[in-house]
Simulated assay, not measured.
Amino acid sequence: MIKTVVGSYPVLKKQQPQNFKEKVLNKLGLFDEFKKSMNRAIEAQLESGIDIISDGQVRGDMVDIFTSQMYGFDGKKVIDKIEFLKPITLKDLKYTNEYVKSKNPNIGVKGILTGACTIASSIRVEKYYSDNKDESLIMDLAKALNKEALAIQNYVKVIQIDEPILSTGLYDMKIAKKAVDEITKGLSIPIAIHVCGNVKDIFEDLNEFNVDILDHEFASNRANLDILESCRKKIGFGCINTKLKTIDPVDSIKGLLSEGIEIIKQNPYINDDLDGNIIIDPDCGMRLLPESVAFGKLKNMVVAAEEIEKELYNK
């Protein structure tokens, strides 16, 4: 079973230039104050045994990373038609990909896009669109995100669309599906959608989305276990509770995984191909956790997943 992450990792304070070379780069406007955070995030994921890692999403929160680089925004205020200007995450993903390949060519990188509905829900509409639920706003965001996805797809193994707002019921699922259809146009790699929270009420809609993987949280939302029997996609199984600032014990992670696997075995769409259809990951991003806790959670998650595999397949 593949082990991955949802995305974000704890961020160090912005680094100041320390040596002569860094000070020169800073004078030239070339010093990257987030590089150390990115390196720490990459190394932590590699050391913990993650198979498909992220760049740590260190440059800002999940919305600001995108709104700060799209035309039509002033901060998180919409002041004009939303348009794609240039690739936003490409540089960091290229760097992460090169870094990883130099360490272990078998490790993959995940591209992460904050979904159109979640971005729309987090901004203030001042001009051009009527409000945060304006379908034109959502679709213009989706068109911009599609261009981002096309720019990064050659450097990643999978692209994940983050849409946590969907579990709240605040957005029309037909419009959300239309937006995901737009974002995924022309892509030739696997696509995941991550929706945290309780997804039981929207799960049948999500089953119809044009994605390969449905990724949800089960450690902090055990009610979601009920969806496993009828999922018609690969399952991203969130098994560590990212809301708690304590390290999940291996035995509790194994217990949750075992419970989920027993339900999944009854799923006619998955049958016996557990390895190919279950992806192990945290419930959500880990940006707000202490760094030592985030690493401990990932390490225990990998240990638990590997022990479960041994028990299932006598590996």
Rank of each mutant, 00 (worst) to 15 (best):
V5K: 01
V6R: 00
V6M: 08
P10H: 07
P10A: 09
V11C: 08
K13N: 11
Q16V: 06
Q18M: 14
N19Q: 05
F20T: 14
K21H: 14
E22D: 13
K23W: 04
N26M: 00
L30C: 06
M38T: 11
A41C: 06
E47T: 13
S48V: 05
I50A: 15
I52Q: 03
I53R: 08
D55M: 00
V58R: 00
D61F: 00
M62R: 00
D64T: 13
D64M: 02
M70R: 01
Y71R: 11
F73E: 08
D74W: 02
D74G: 11
G75F: 03
G75D: 05
F84V: 04
L85S: 09
L85H: 03
P87L: 04
L90Q: 06
D92G: 03
D92I: 02
K101V: 09
S102P: 09
K103N: 15
I107C: 09
G108H: 12
V109G: 10
V109W: 03
K110S: 09
I112K: 03
T114V: 09
T118D: 10
S121N: 13
R124E: 15
V125L: 08
V125D: 12
E126I: 01
N132M: 05
K133Q: 12
E135H: 02
L137S: 06
I138S: 04
D140F: 01
A142H: 01
A142Y: 00
A144E: 04
E148L: 01
A149D: 08
A151D: 14
I152M: 10
I152R: 01
I152S: 12
N154T: 05
Y155H: 15
K157T: 11
I161F: 00
E163A: 01
P164W: 00
L166P: 12
M173F: 02
V180N: 10
K185G: 10
K185S: 12
L187K: 08
L187P: 14
L187W: 14
I189W: 11
A192V: 04
D201N: 15
I202E: 05
E204M: 07
L206K: 10
L206H: 13
L206M: 15
F209P: 14
F209C: 07
N210C: 10
N210E: 08
V211Y: 05
F218W: 03
S220I: 04
N221Q: 15
L225E: 14
S230W: 02
K233L: 09
K233G: 12
K234S: 11
I235F: 03
F237T: 03
I240D: 07
T242A: 07
I247H: 06
D251I: 04
S252L: 03
I253H: 10
I253A: 05
I253K: 06
L256W: 02
L256C: 14
L256F: 07
E259T: 11
G260L: 04
I263N: 12
I263H: 09
Q266C: 11
N271L: 10
D272S: 14
D272W: 02
D275Q: 09
D275F: 06
N277R: 06
I278L: 13
I278E: 11
I280N: 10
D281F: 00
G285L: 06
M286V: 07
L288D: 15
L289M: 13
P290M: 01
V293S: 09
V293K: 07
A294Y: 02
A294V: 02
G296R: 01
L298A: 04
A304F: 00
A305K: 03
I308H: 03
I308E: 11
E309F: 00
E311Q: 10
L312F: 04
Y313T: 11
N314F: 05
